[in-house]
Amino acid sequence: MDSYLIAMVTLAAIYAMMAISLNLSWGLAGMVNLGLAGFISIGAYASGLLTTVLGWPVPLAILAAMIIGLVSGVALTYVTLRLRDDYLAIVTLGFAEVIRLAIVNELWLTHGSDGISGIPGIVAREYGYGFELGTLALALAAVALCYWLADRVRTSPYGRNLRAIRDDPEGTAVAGKNVTLIKVKTFGLSTAIAALAGAFYAHYTSFISPEIFQPLLTMYVFLALTMGGTGNNRGAMLGAFLLIFVLEASRFIAPSLPQFSAVQHAAIREMLVAVLFILTLLYRPQGISPETRHR
């Protein structure tokens, strides 16, 4: 039981990193990133390949994954700068699909849909329970670091610029702010954190394949952030933990509803997530922990 709880908190922590990443780009700067899963997979594959093929030490590979995530994020915003918000959403969605197709087809590098297995853990897997606890501690530390970083951004004057860009990009530009540069930098930081989450996922589960990084993953993170509170980093973390809690706790409802079949239990679980989301949007559209208003 305890190793199950440890595993779920570890996964929730990885989701929390994804939610913080999305909050930076979408929550604070208003840049819709529907390609989040693509950046997560870039991080996972970068770190997974560097450790399994080139034998890099795990910390170095994770760092490299973050840099690759950052570079790809910067490159993508750079080419889409002239696009309006809704176009950015479409381009990022397409970008994620391009990444997925590249992973499926570049067999020499990624083994296609067979995926990459045997990725070493951040803590050696041989330690068993120690591996679980150690990875949990490191994942929580990474979340804390991401939170600290993202909240520094949010509370700084730079963060005010971000909110200004989100609410009125033209006005911000007229006020003399370099909107382009701010957008590129923020998106890069956001995708670096997404890559970090992907790298953690790869080293934790030891196996990655293109099917893991489906658009559903992006949707889950949007769900977590919306429930937690868009624009609030604490809300992002809370939403991620709440999402995993709901997804997992709903499993334990099944034994108390023996009148339903296994298929119905599965459907009830999916409905529960949807109902919770609709209720949040109806009664608390700003999320559980909404964005605080600043000076």
């Binding site: 039981m1 190793s3 589960t205």
Partner: peptide, 15 residues
């Protein structure tokens, strides 16, 4: 979905 399956099998094995 492999991501969901990893969580599900954790429950089957650990719990």
């Amino acid at each position: 979905n492999p991501e969901a399956a990893v969580r599900a099998i954790r429950k089957l094995i650990n719990v």
